[in-house]
Nucleic acid binder design. Structure first.
Lengths: 140, 140
DNA sequence: ATAATTGCAAATTTTTTGCAGGTTC
DNA sequence: GAACCTGCAAAAAATTTGCAATTAT
């Protein structure tokens, strides 16, 4: 469990109740849209404003605390910054699962982009399909 | 150069002037946002409505003519359906370049997801960095 | 004490919808 | 000619902004 107050302060942001709850929700869930974050955190903190969520997500992305995960056919989700990984996106339920990033893929992409004279800074790999949980439902 | 009229008809869509121009613009440019498509096509066809662009993009994605390419920090772009490939996204100028998809990556992702009992249907790989063209500009 | 942050309401931007008139097959 | 499509205007949804009151450091 991350120390959100420290994380925020290191990033030059004040450790407000709202921000800590946003971060905690995202970490628990893994990946959340703005709306889902609002719906979740407003239950704990009823005076929360959606505008505050927007402002904070933007700030925390700028400060490198969060990363935007854009997904085909869905609104973007946000996750805590973490080591490179792959997203398995279920096209049935919309859930996103992380998969550790294979070092072979790393080497592959590095060589591909070096060849292209492209200075690689970030990778984003989304694999879309049906998760094991939804396969059961779809079969019926 | 694709035969857009045939492509549309095969997909159960009427081959209107607007649709053909939208497809031609996208194919020329490679990847375009809704706004960019509108700005481009309205010059050829001044009565074009932005609502028509929205409706058509949605329809053509549903019918498998176009694919949405979601990109961190930008509005989504759209491309013609084509063989699997990788996107090199320049964080300076926003341009997206296609790179042929390496079969090693394919094998890798297939084995990774099989292990997870995840039925893989689509891959989406975005590599973010600075393109060779922008490296010159940034250096100055 | 100071600067940053919140929540509200309003403004703006983006996307969707309904429908009358026009177009494709 | 029938079904589909377009463009307009209006509606709805999503995001941003300004500001007075509050909170973190």
């Amino acid at each position: 469990m991350t120390d959100y107050a420290a994380l925020l302060k290191e990033s030059g942001l004040k450790a407000t109740f709202q921000r800590m709850n946003i971060l905690e929700s995202i970490e628990r869930q893994g990946h959340m849209s703005i709306d889902a974050i609002y719906d979740k955190v407003v239950k704990i903190h009823p005076s929360l404003s959606l505008a505050t969520v927007y402002k904070n997500i933007i700030l925390m992305v700028e400060q490198g605390v969060l990363v935007e995960v854009p997904i085909t056919g869905q609104k973007a989700k946000y996750e805590l910054v973490k080591d490179d990984h792959i997203h398995l996106v279920c096209t049935e339920c919309g859930e996103v699962e992380d998969k550790p990033h294979d070092s072979r893929a790393d080497a592959l992409f590095n060589s591909m982009t070096k060849h292209e004279n492209f200075v690689l800074s970030k990778q984003q790999i989304n694999l879309y399909g049906v998760c094991s949980h939804c396969q059961v439902k779809v079969a019926s």
